[in-house]
Design a protein around this nucleic acid. Structure first.
Lengths: 341, 341
DNA sequence: AATGCAAATGTAAGCGCTTACATTGGCGCG
DNA sequence: CGCGCCAATGTAAGCGCTTACATTTGCATT
């Protein structure tokens, strides 16, 4: 059974007795075509089982109805969830989603961005602001709308064109540190994310340090660790050995916090009686682990939704939408308490 | 700053003093071009910052180097993880991934498949076998290679062309039910997934029922429930009210099991002393919740990887790769014990 | 030096659409 | 009844590549 040639626009035109231009209009700007012909064309389309060839369309029309997204990894629930909503929203507007993941690697991300642009994406979703200036220039030169999700800064670095849809990582982290300090903790350490090429991780560390300094707690212990439960366990174990055990451990995200909790418990520590541990993100595991984590709630789905809306606005109106700051809030559960000693 | 026209293949050809065909060959079959010219062309490419237009390429060459995937949802960690690996593998072969999610809806899935085909994808990843026969016909007619992940059956339904890369859901479920029965349980109920348009969910239910019947335990209680912790809690609560409390609850996946555990605990039941609860999938939360779940381990990443390999094989060799059955295994943790009474 | 052949390169016809511009036709109005 | 105008449709020129086929080149043979 060999592939019979698929019907093309021309075949539809012939069958309907109109020109290709009219068929094209029926498909793309139906209101420019009078009802009678539109119906005739529709009939021909149905009869032939015609489906447009999007590559040809993209080539001729110079728009692809494809949005590209480069995220660090889909294994991280926070991105998966946001991407899911992002995609659903785009789908409503007949855009499809080309995804790539960079595994947090700068050069991989750059390659992927270029590849997506080569594919003629109409817009791009990126995570965080930290990347080579030349990439921003590249995108601007080609006039590709893009939004940067997850980060938000009050003052913009000029280099980052594109729209920001995110939250202030530094402030959010500072707020939970503030809470921990208010509970009476002084010996506080941080289990942080890897800050290389990751402005969210850096900002959270800054937020921690700044708030500590504000209370006269200088040079606190900060250990960077990859996003992984087991690595977090080891990192926490190492921290205890090297720096001793803090009364409170601030984690840059819930996965690290879960690792720390698990390790603390297996080392015979009671959370929160012996050590308080806080998370960041408020993903599912935060409320499943026992004790449930006191953590910073991040509106992941909102991030996905607003990123989509902002991007669509920029594509359709060619008018630059505003940056959007989303709010986080602390959800207090049971992993944070006043220090016992 | 208006968009200056991007360099095209012709510009490169002119600058390098060769024909467009040669440039094209340099890019696609470099070994057909002699070293000297190749270098000259490369220089021109670099100088102009030339990037090929993939839409034009796809149109002319009739292959897009894009793979499509339609999954139920990315919010489900099992799919997200598999897709991540799938994408990484494709990326190695310079394929990009167009993803769509169907939210478990049959008609949405169909629409997305058609859209992806319109985009000219070179291959397709689908989840599970259960869909309209006409979709299979559609795909076959157009000779689009596709693999169906997550399901595996010893005997193939003829309608499902495409390759299967999955595991036998029925057998896997039967094996854990067997274990539960061996522990001495007789009053066993199941918290199942929604089986509409979902052969994995159906198979797991069948596996449960068959194994129960094998031990003379007829008409066991089976309640279907959406993939959601809170809904699982309510479903379990409802089950207790209507059918009483089983000594063991088999859940169709870990998310449902976690919901059941949480609800059981909040109703004052001890897991596993008062009730044993088993999961399925072995995702992260299975080992984080306390008690950690005894569950069926599914090799999600393998699923993603082998799906990619199978698909690539079918695309490149135009030779149909074999179906692939992956093995699951039971991981015993602490949520299953012998019944006390 | 003439010959043959394969390897390297060039020529040009599409791939299936969109859209600027040209043409047609219907209708209100003087 | 003829004119002008606008809405509906048609014509045809690309969009930026790939590739079948034609041509040229280089080189080993005789």
């Amino acid at each position: 059974m060999s592939k019979q040639p698929l019907p093309k626009l021309e075949d539809v035109a012939r069958l309907a007795g109109v020109s290709t231009a009219t068929v094209s209009r029926c498909l793309n700007q139906p209101n420019q075509v009078v009802e009678a012909t539109r119906k005739r064309v529709q009939k021909a389309v149905d009869e032939l089982g015609y489906m447009p060839n999007f590559n040809a369309r993209s080539l001729a029309a110079k728009r692809s109805k494809i949005i590209g997204a480069v995220i660090p990894t889909m294994e991280n629930a926070i991105f998966a969830r946001a991407i899911q909503v992002f995609q659903e929203r785009l789908s409503e507007e007949d855009f499809d989603l080309l995804v790539a993941s960079s595994s947090y690697k700068k050069d991989v991300e750059e390659k992927q961005i270029r590849s997506l642009v080569s594919r003629g994406v109409d817009g791009l979703l990126l995570i965080g602001t930290q990347r080579d200036r030349k990439i921003y220039e590249f995108l601007q030169e080609r006039e590709i709308p893009f939004v940067i999700a997850w980060s938000f800064y009050d003052k913009r670095d000029e280099a980052t064109s594109g729209q920001l849809v995110g939250f202030n990582n530094q402030k959010a982290m500072a707020s939970i540190v503030q809470l921990v300090i208010e509970k009476g903790h002084r010996k506080i350490a941080m289990l942080a994310g890897i800050k290389d090429n990751n402005d969210r991780a850096s900002s959270r560390i800054e937020g921690f340090k700044a708030k500590m300094a504000e209370h006269g707690l200088m040079d606190p212990c900060v250990i960077e660790c990859e996003y992984d439960i087991d690595k977090a366990r080891k990192a926490f174990a190492g921290m205890r050995q090297t720096f001793g055990t803090p009364t409170a451990l601030i984690c840059a995200n819930d996965v690290l916090a879960v690792g720390a909790v698990l390790e603390a418990q297996s080392q015979g520590l009671n959370v929160p009686d012996d050590i308080s541990i806080t998370g960041f993100d408020d993903i599912e595991i935060a409320s499943i682990i026992s004790p449930a984590l006191t953590t910073v709630h991040v509106p992941h789905k909102m991030l996905g939704l607003h990123s989509a809306n902002t991007l669509l606005a920029n594509i359709n109106d060619a008018r630059i939408a505003d940056d959007m700051e989303l709010k986080t809030n602390i959800v207090e559960r049971y992993s944070l308490a006043e220090p016992k000693n």
